[in-house]
Design a protein around this nucleic acid. Structure first.
Length: 263
DNA sequence: ATGGTAGCGTAGCTA
């Protein structure tokens, strides 16, 4: 069972790139973030011929938007709304073995890491708090669940190119790392990617568009994650972060696909 | 300390 997640930064602009990824890497389920399109304009048909006929999409005009594209049946298609907004950041569905799969897009949070000065940062922290409370209340840590998405936080020292230089930069501040830790604790979530890659090794899934030469400067961050609940840890088989996709022509996303294989 | 690029949609917001 191959699960993949990718912040695609416009699914309409990059639908051929999504198809390339599907053809070359054969995910059973692909979760997308930042689809940036209302549901009626989502290119559903483009993915049907490759076998992704089970589709759970939830988008809006211009911003955000999430999608689950699957070759295996999805049931209980659900949408959640957080922090008093209806901004298309969280959907989930049930896989045939009853595993609940969540596709999440956490707000980037703006530039200033201060809730008093920056309401986008406050929104980010509020959403994380609400999600933590939600899973805590469910208290069903022993059920099979997978959480994937652009969480817009790089929690570990080697999830960023320079821990010291990014301590005040939104995505790697101590308060965000703490909130993400609470989220992880709320359901006993386990980092399925770091399971395979030791914490002292650099690992990135995003490189800014603003760098002159992203590959040469290599100032990346690991913002995209795949987590699983405890019962799935023993099924973990392998992982891959598709760095090369950052260079895909003609116009790459600034994020690359993250893949985990489960038995 | 500053400014650098990209997408949507055609100004300015968000990332």
């Amino acid at each position: 069972m191959r699960i993949a997640t990718w912040n695609i930064n416009s699914v309409r602009l990059r639908q051929d790139m999504v198809k390339r990824f599907m053809a070359e890497h054969q995910p059973d389920v692909l979760c997308l973030q930042e689809t940036k399109t209302p549901d009626e304009l989502f290119p559903r048909d483009a993915f049907l011929s490759l076998g992704y006929k089970h589709q759970h999409i939830h988008g809006m005009k211009g911003y955000n938007g999430v999608a689950i594209l699957s070759r295996i049946p999805l049931t209980n298609l659900s949408i959640e709304r957080w922090a008093g907004k209806d901004d298309c950041r969280h959907i989930y569905a049930t896989l045939p073995d009853k595993t609940e799969l969540h596709c999440l897009y956490v707000p980037a949070g703006g530039d200033i890491p201060d809730v008093a000065l920056n309401e986008k940062f406050a929104h980010k922290l509020t959403l994380l708090d609400e999600l933590s409370g939600w899973w805590k209340n469910k208290s069903a840590h022993e059920t099979r669940k997978i959480l994937v998405g652009d969480l817009n936080i790089a929690p570990l020292e080697h999830d960023v190119w320079s821990h010291k230089q990014l301590l005040d930069v939104v995505s790697h501040t101590p308060i965000e790392v703490e909130k993400l830790g609470h989220l992880q604790k709320s359901n006993g979530w386990y980092d399925a990617v770091r399971h395979f890659v030791p914490a002292d090794q650099k690992l990135y899934s995003w490189w800014s568009y603003r760098a002159g030469d992203w590959a040469a400067s290599n100032r990346g961050r690991r913002l995209d994650h795949i987590w699983c609940s405890k019962p799935l840890i023993s099924s973990l088989k392998s992982t891959k972060i598709l760095r090369e996709a950052r260079g895909w022509e003609p116009k790459p996303s600034d994020h690359v696909p993250v893949i985990v294989d489960f038995a």
